[in-house]
Amino acid sequence: MTCDEFADHLDDLLAGDGVGRAVTAMGRHADSCSVCRDEWQRGELIRRALSGAAATDEPGAADVCGARERLRTALDQAGHPPIRFGAVTTPVGSVFIGRTEQGVCDVTFGQSSEREYRTTLLQRAPEVWRDEVGLAPVAEQIAAYFAGTLTRFTVPLDLRRVTPFTARVLREIRKIGFGRLTSYGALAARLGSPGASRAVGGALGRNPVPIIVPCHRVLAQGGRLGGFTGGLATKRILLAVEGHQFPEPTPT
């Protein structure tokens, strides 16, 4: 074996590639060549120092927890807080409720299963888990609303995800009391943009927390039912809870 061949094999060893039987020839060569012997010993030193360096960089449990906690904060600040959820059975079917540390961020009906709801939440939240206990106060208020014993929700909301315009519309809707009704046009006028009833309707459609923010109390011109993201059947039931009957249209 020549010194060049020896050096190539040493590179193989340090790159993590095996050299097979050549290791015997390397040994013989090193016995007869002091320069290559030094090289080999230095190579060994590098290999041992590598594991030492690796040990130095090994993160401890506290390092990992710290990094994880900072990640949680960074995700939260980027608009992706963890979400806990629960469900309550109502006359409009299962109502799923999601909440962040700050407050209720989502009310959904018409979802077929918990799994489906969870999947939807996972699109925007890094951590999602069911928390019946944590959601109990919200679930109780929703149940009480359908029982007719609660006319005003007092749960905190997290509306950070909606646009400023939608937020303004939702704030205005929260002022409409139980059993009271208004129209898209009247709402637009109250917001100072009388011509914007279509935009207001759009904002209502993006209400992430229906029932709690009562967008069902907003009707179309002339007292017609208008639209509802959760379906008109649901809107009828919600309005019936508040004493307004809107019969199903009879097919002609």
């Binding site: 390092d63 994880r68 069911r130």
Partner: peptide
């Protein structure tokens, strides 16, 4: 306490790889 379900829980992904990735980045 929820078991992982498809399409996957990002938190669970972080749990699984956080130590390994932090180790790699430190190196």
């Amino acid at each position: 306490t929820c078991p992982a379900e498809p399409p996957g829980d990002f938190g669970l992904l972080v749990d699984t790889y956080q130590t390994e990735i932090l180790r790699y980045l430190r190196r």
